[in-house]
Simulated assay, not measured.
Amino acid sequence: MGRNHKAASLTKLDQLKAALAEIRAEGFAMAIDELEDGTLSIAVLLSERRGRVVAAMSVASHRSRNSPEKMKSDVLPLLRGAADRVHDILRDFQDRNWTVL
């Protein structure tokens, strides 16, 4: 069964590696028209104390309501704030020797 890719989808390994390097450097990822035309999403990683990524947190919107620039300027700081609070909870779990995913 074949997959349908949108024009914005990364389908080549070298493109994907470059995008992942940029995501690591910037600390967030943004998808524009990748799942469906007109959709935007922005995401940050959630990691435990040793740096192992255990999840991601994202917000999605539509171009009729937001732009990529507005997502970066308005949504990303709130998303990072929420991720910081989750990181604090994950670290607290680890301090208590509770299982983290």
Rank of each mutant, 00 (worst) to 15 (best):
1 M>E: 11
1 M>P: 11
2 G>Y: 02
4 N>S: 05
5 H>K: 03
6 K>D: 10
7 A>V: 14
7 A>Y: 08
9 S>Y: 05
9 S>C: 13
13 L>T: 09
14 D>W: 01
15 Q>A: 11
15 Q>R: 08
15 Q>S: 09
17 K>P: 02
17 K>W: 06
19 A>R: 15
20 L>K: 13
20 L>S: 00
21 A>T: 06
21 A>L: 12
22 E>Y: 06
23 I>H: 04
26 E>D: 14
29 A>C: 00
29 A>V: 04
29 A>Q: 04
30 M>D: 05
31 A>R: 02
31 A>D: 13
32 I>H: 00
32 I>G: 10
32 I>N: 06
33 D>C: 02
34 E>W: 10
34 E>P: 05
34 E>V: 02
35 L>V: 06
36 E>C: 00
36 E>T: 11
39 T>Y: 08
41 S>V: 07
45 L>C: 08
46 L>V: 14
47 S>N: 08
48 E>H: 13
48 E>R: 15
49 R>L: 04
50 R>T: 14
52 R>W: 00
52 R>T: 12
53 V>I: 13
53 V>F: 04
53 V>T: 13
54 V>Q: 01
55 A>F: 07
56 A>H: 01
61 S>C: 04
62 H>P: 01
62 H>N: 08
63 R>T: 14
63 R>Y: 09
64 S>R: 13
65 R>G: 06
68 P>T: 09
68 P>Q: 04
68 P>Y: 11
68 P>V: 09
69 E>I: 06
69 E>S: 07
70 K>I: 06
72 K>S: 02
73 S>R: 09
73 S>A: 07
73 S>H: 02
73 S>M: 01
75 V>G: 01
76 L>Q: 05
77 P>K: 13
78 L>Y: 00
83 A>C: 09
84 D>R: 13
85 R>I: 05
85 R>T: 05
86 V>E: 09
87 H>C: 06
87 H>V: 15
88 D>M: 05
89 I>D: 03
91 R>A: 11
91 R>F: 14
93 F>D: 09
94 Q>L: 02
96 R>C: 10
97 N>C: 02
98 W>Q: 15
100 V>I: 10
100 V>N: 01
101 L>A: 14
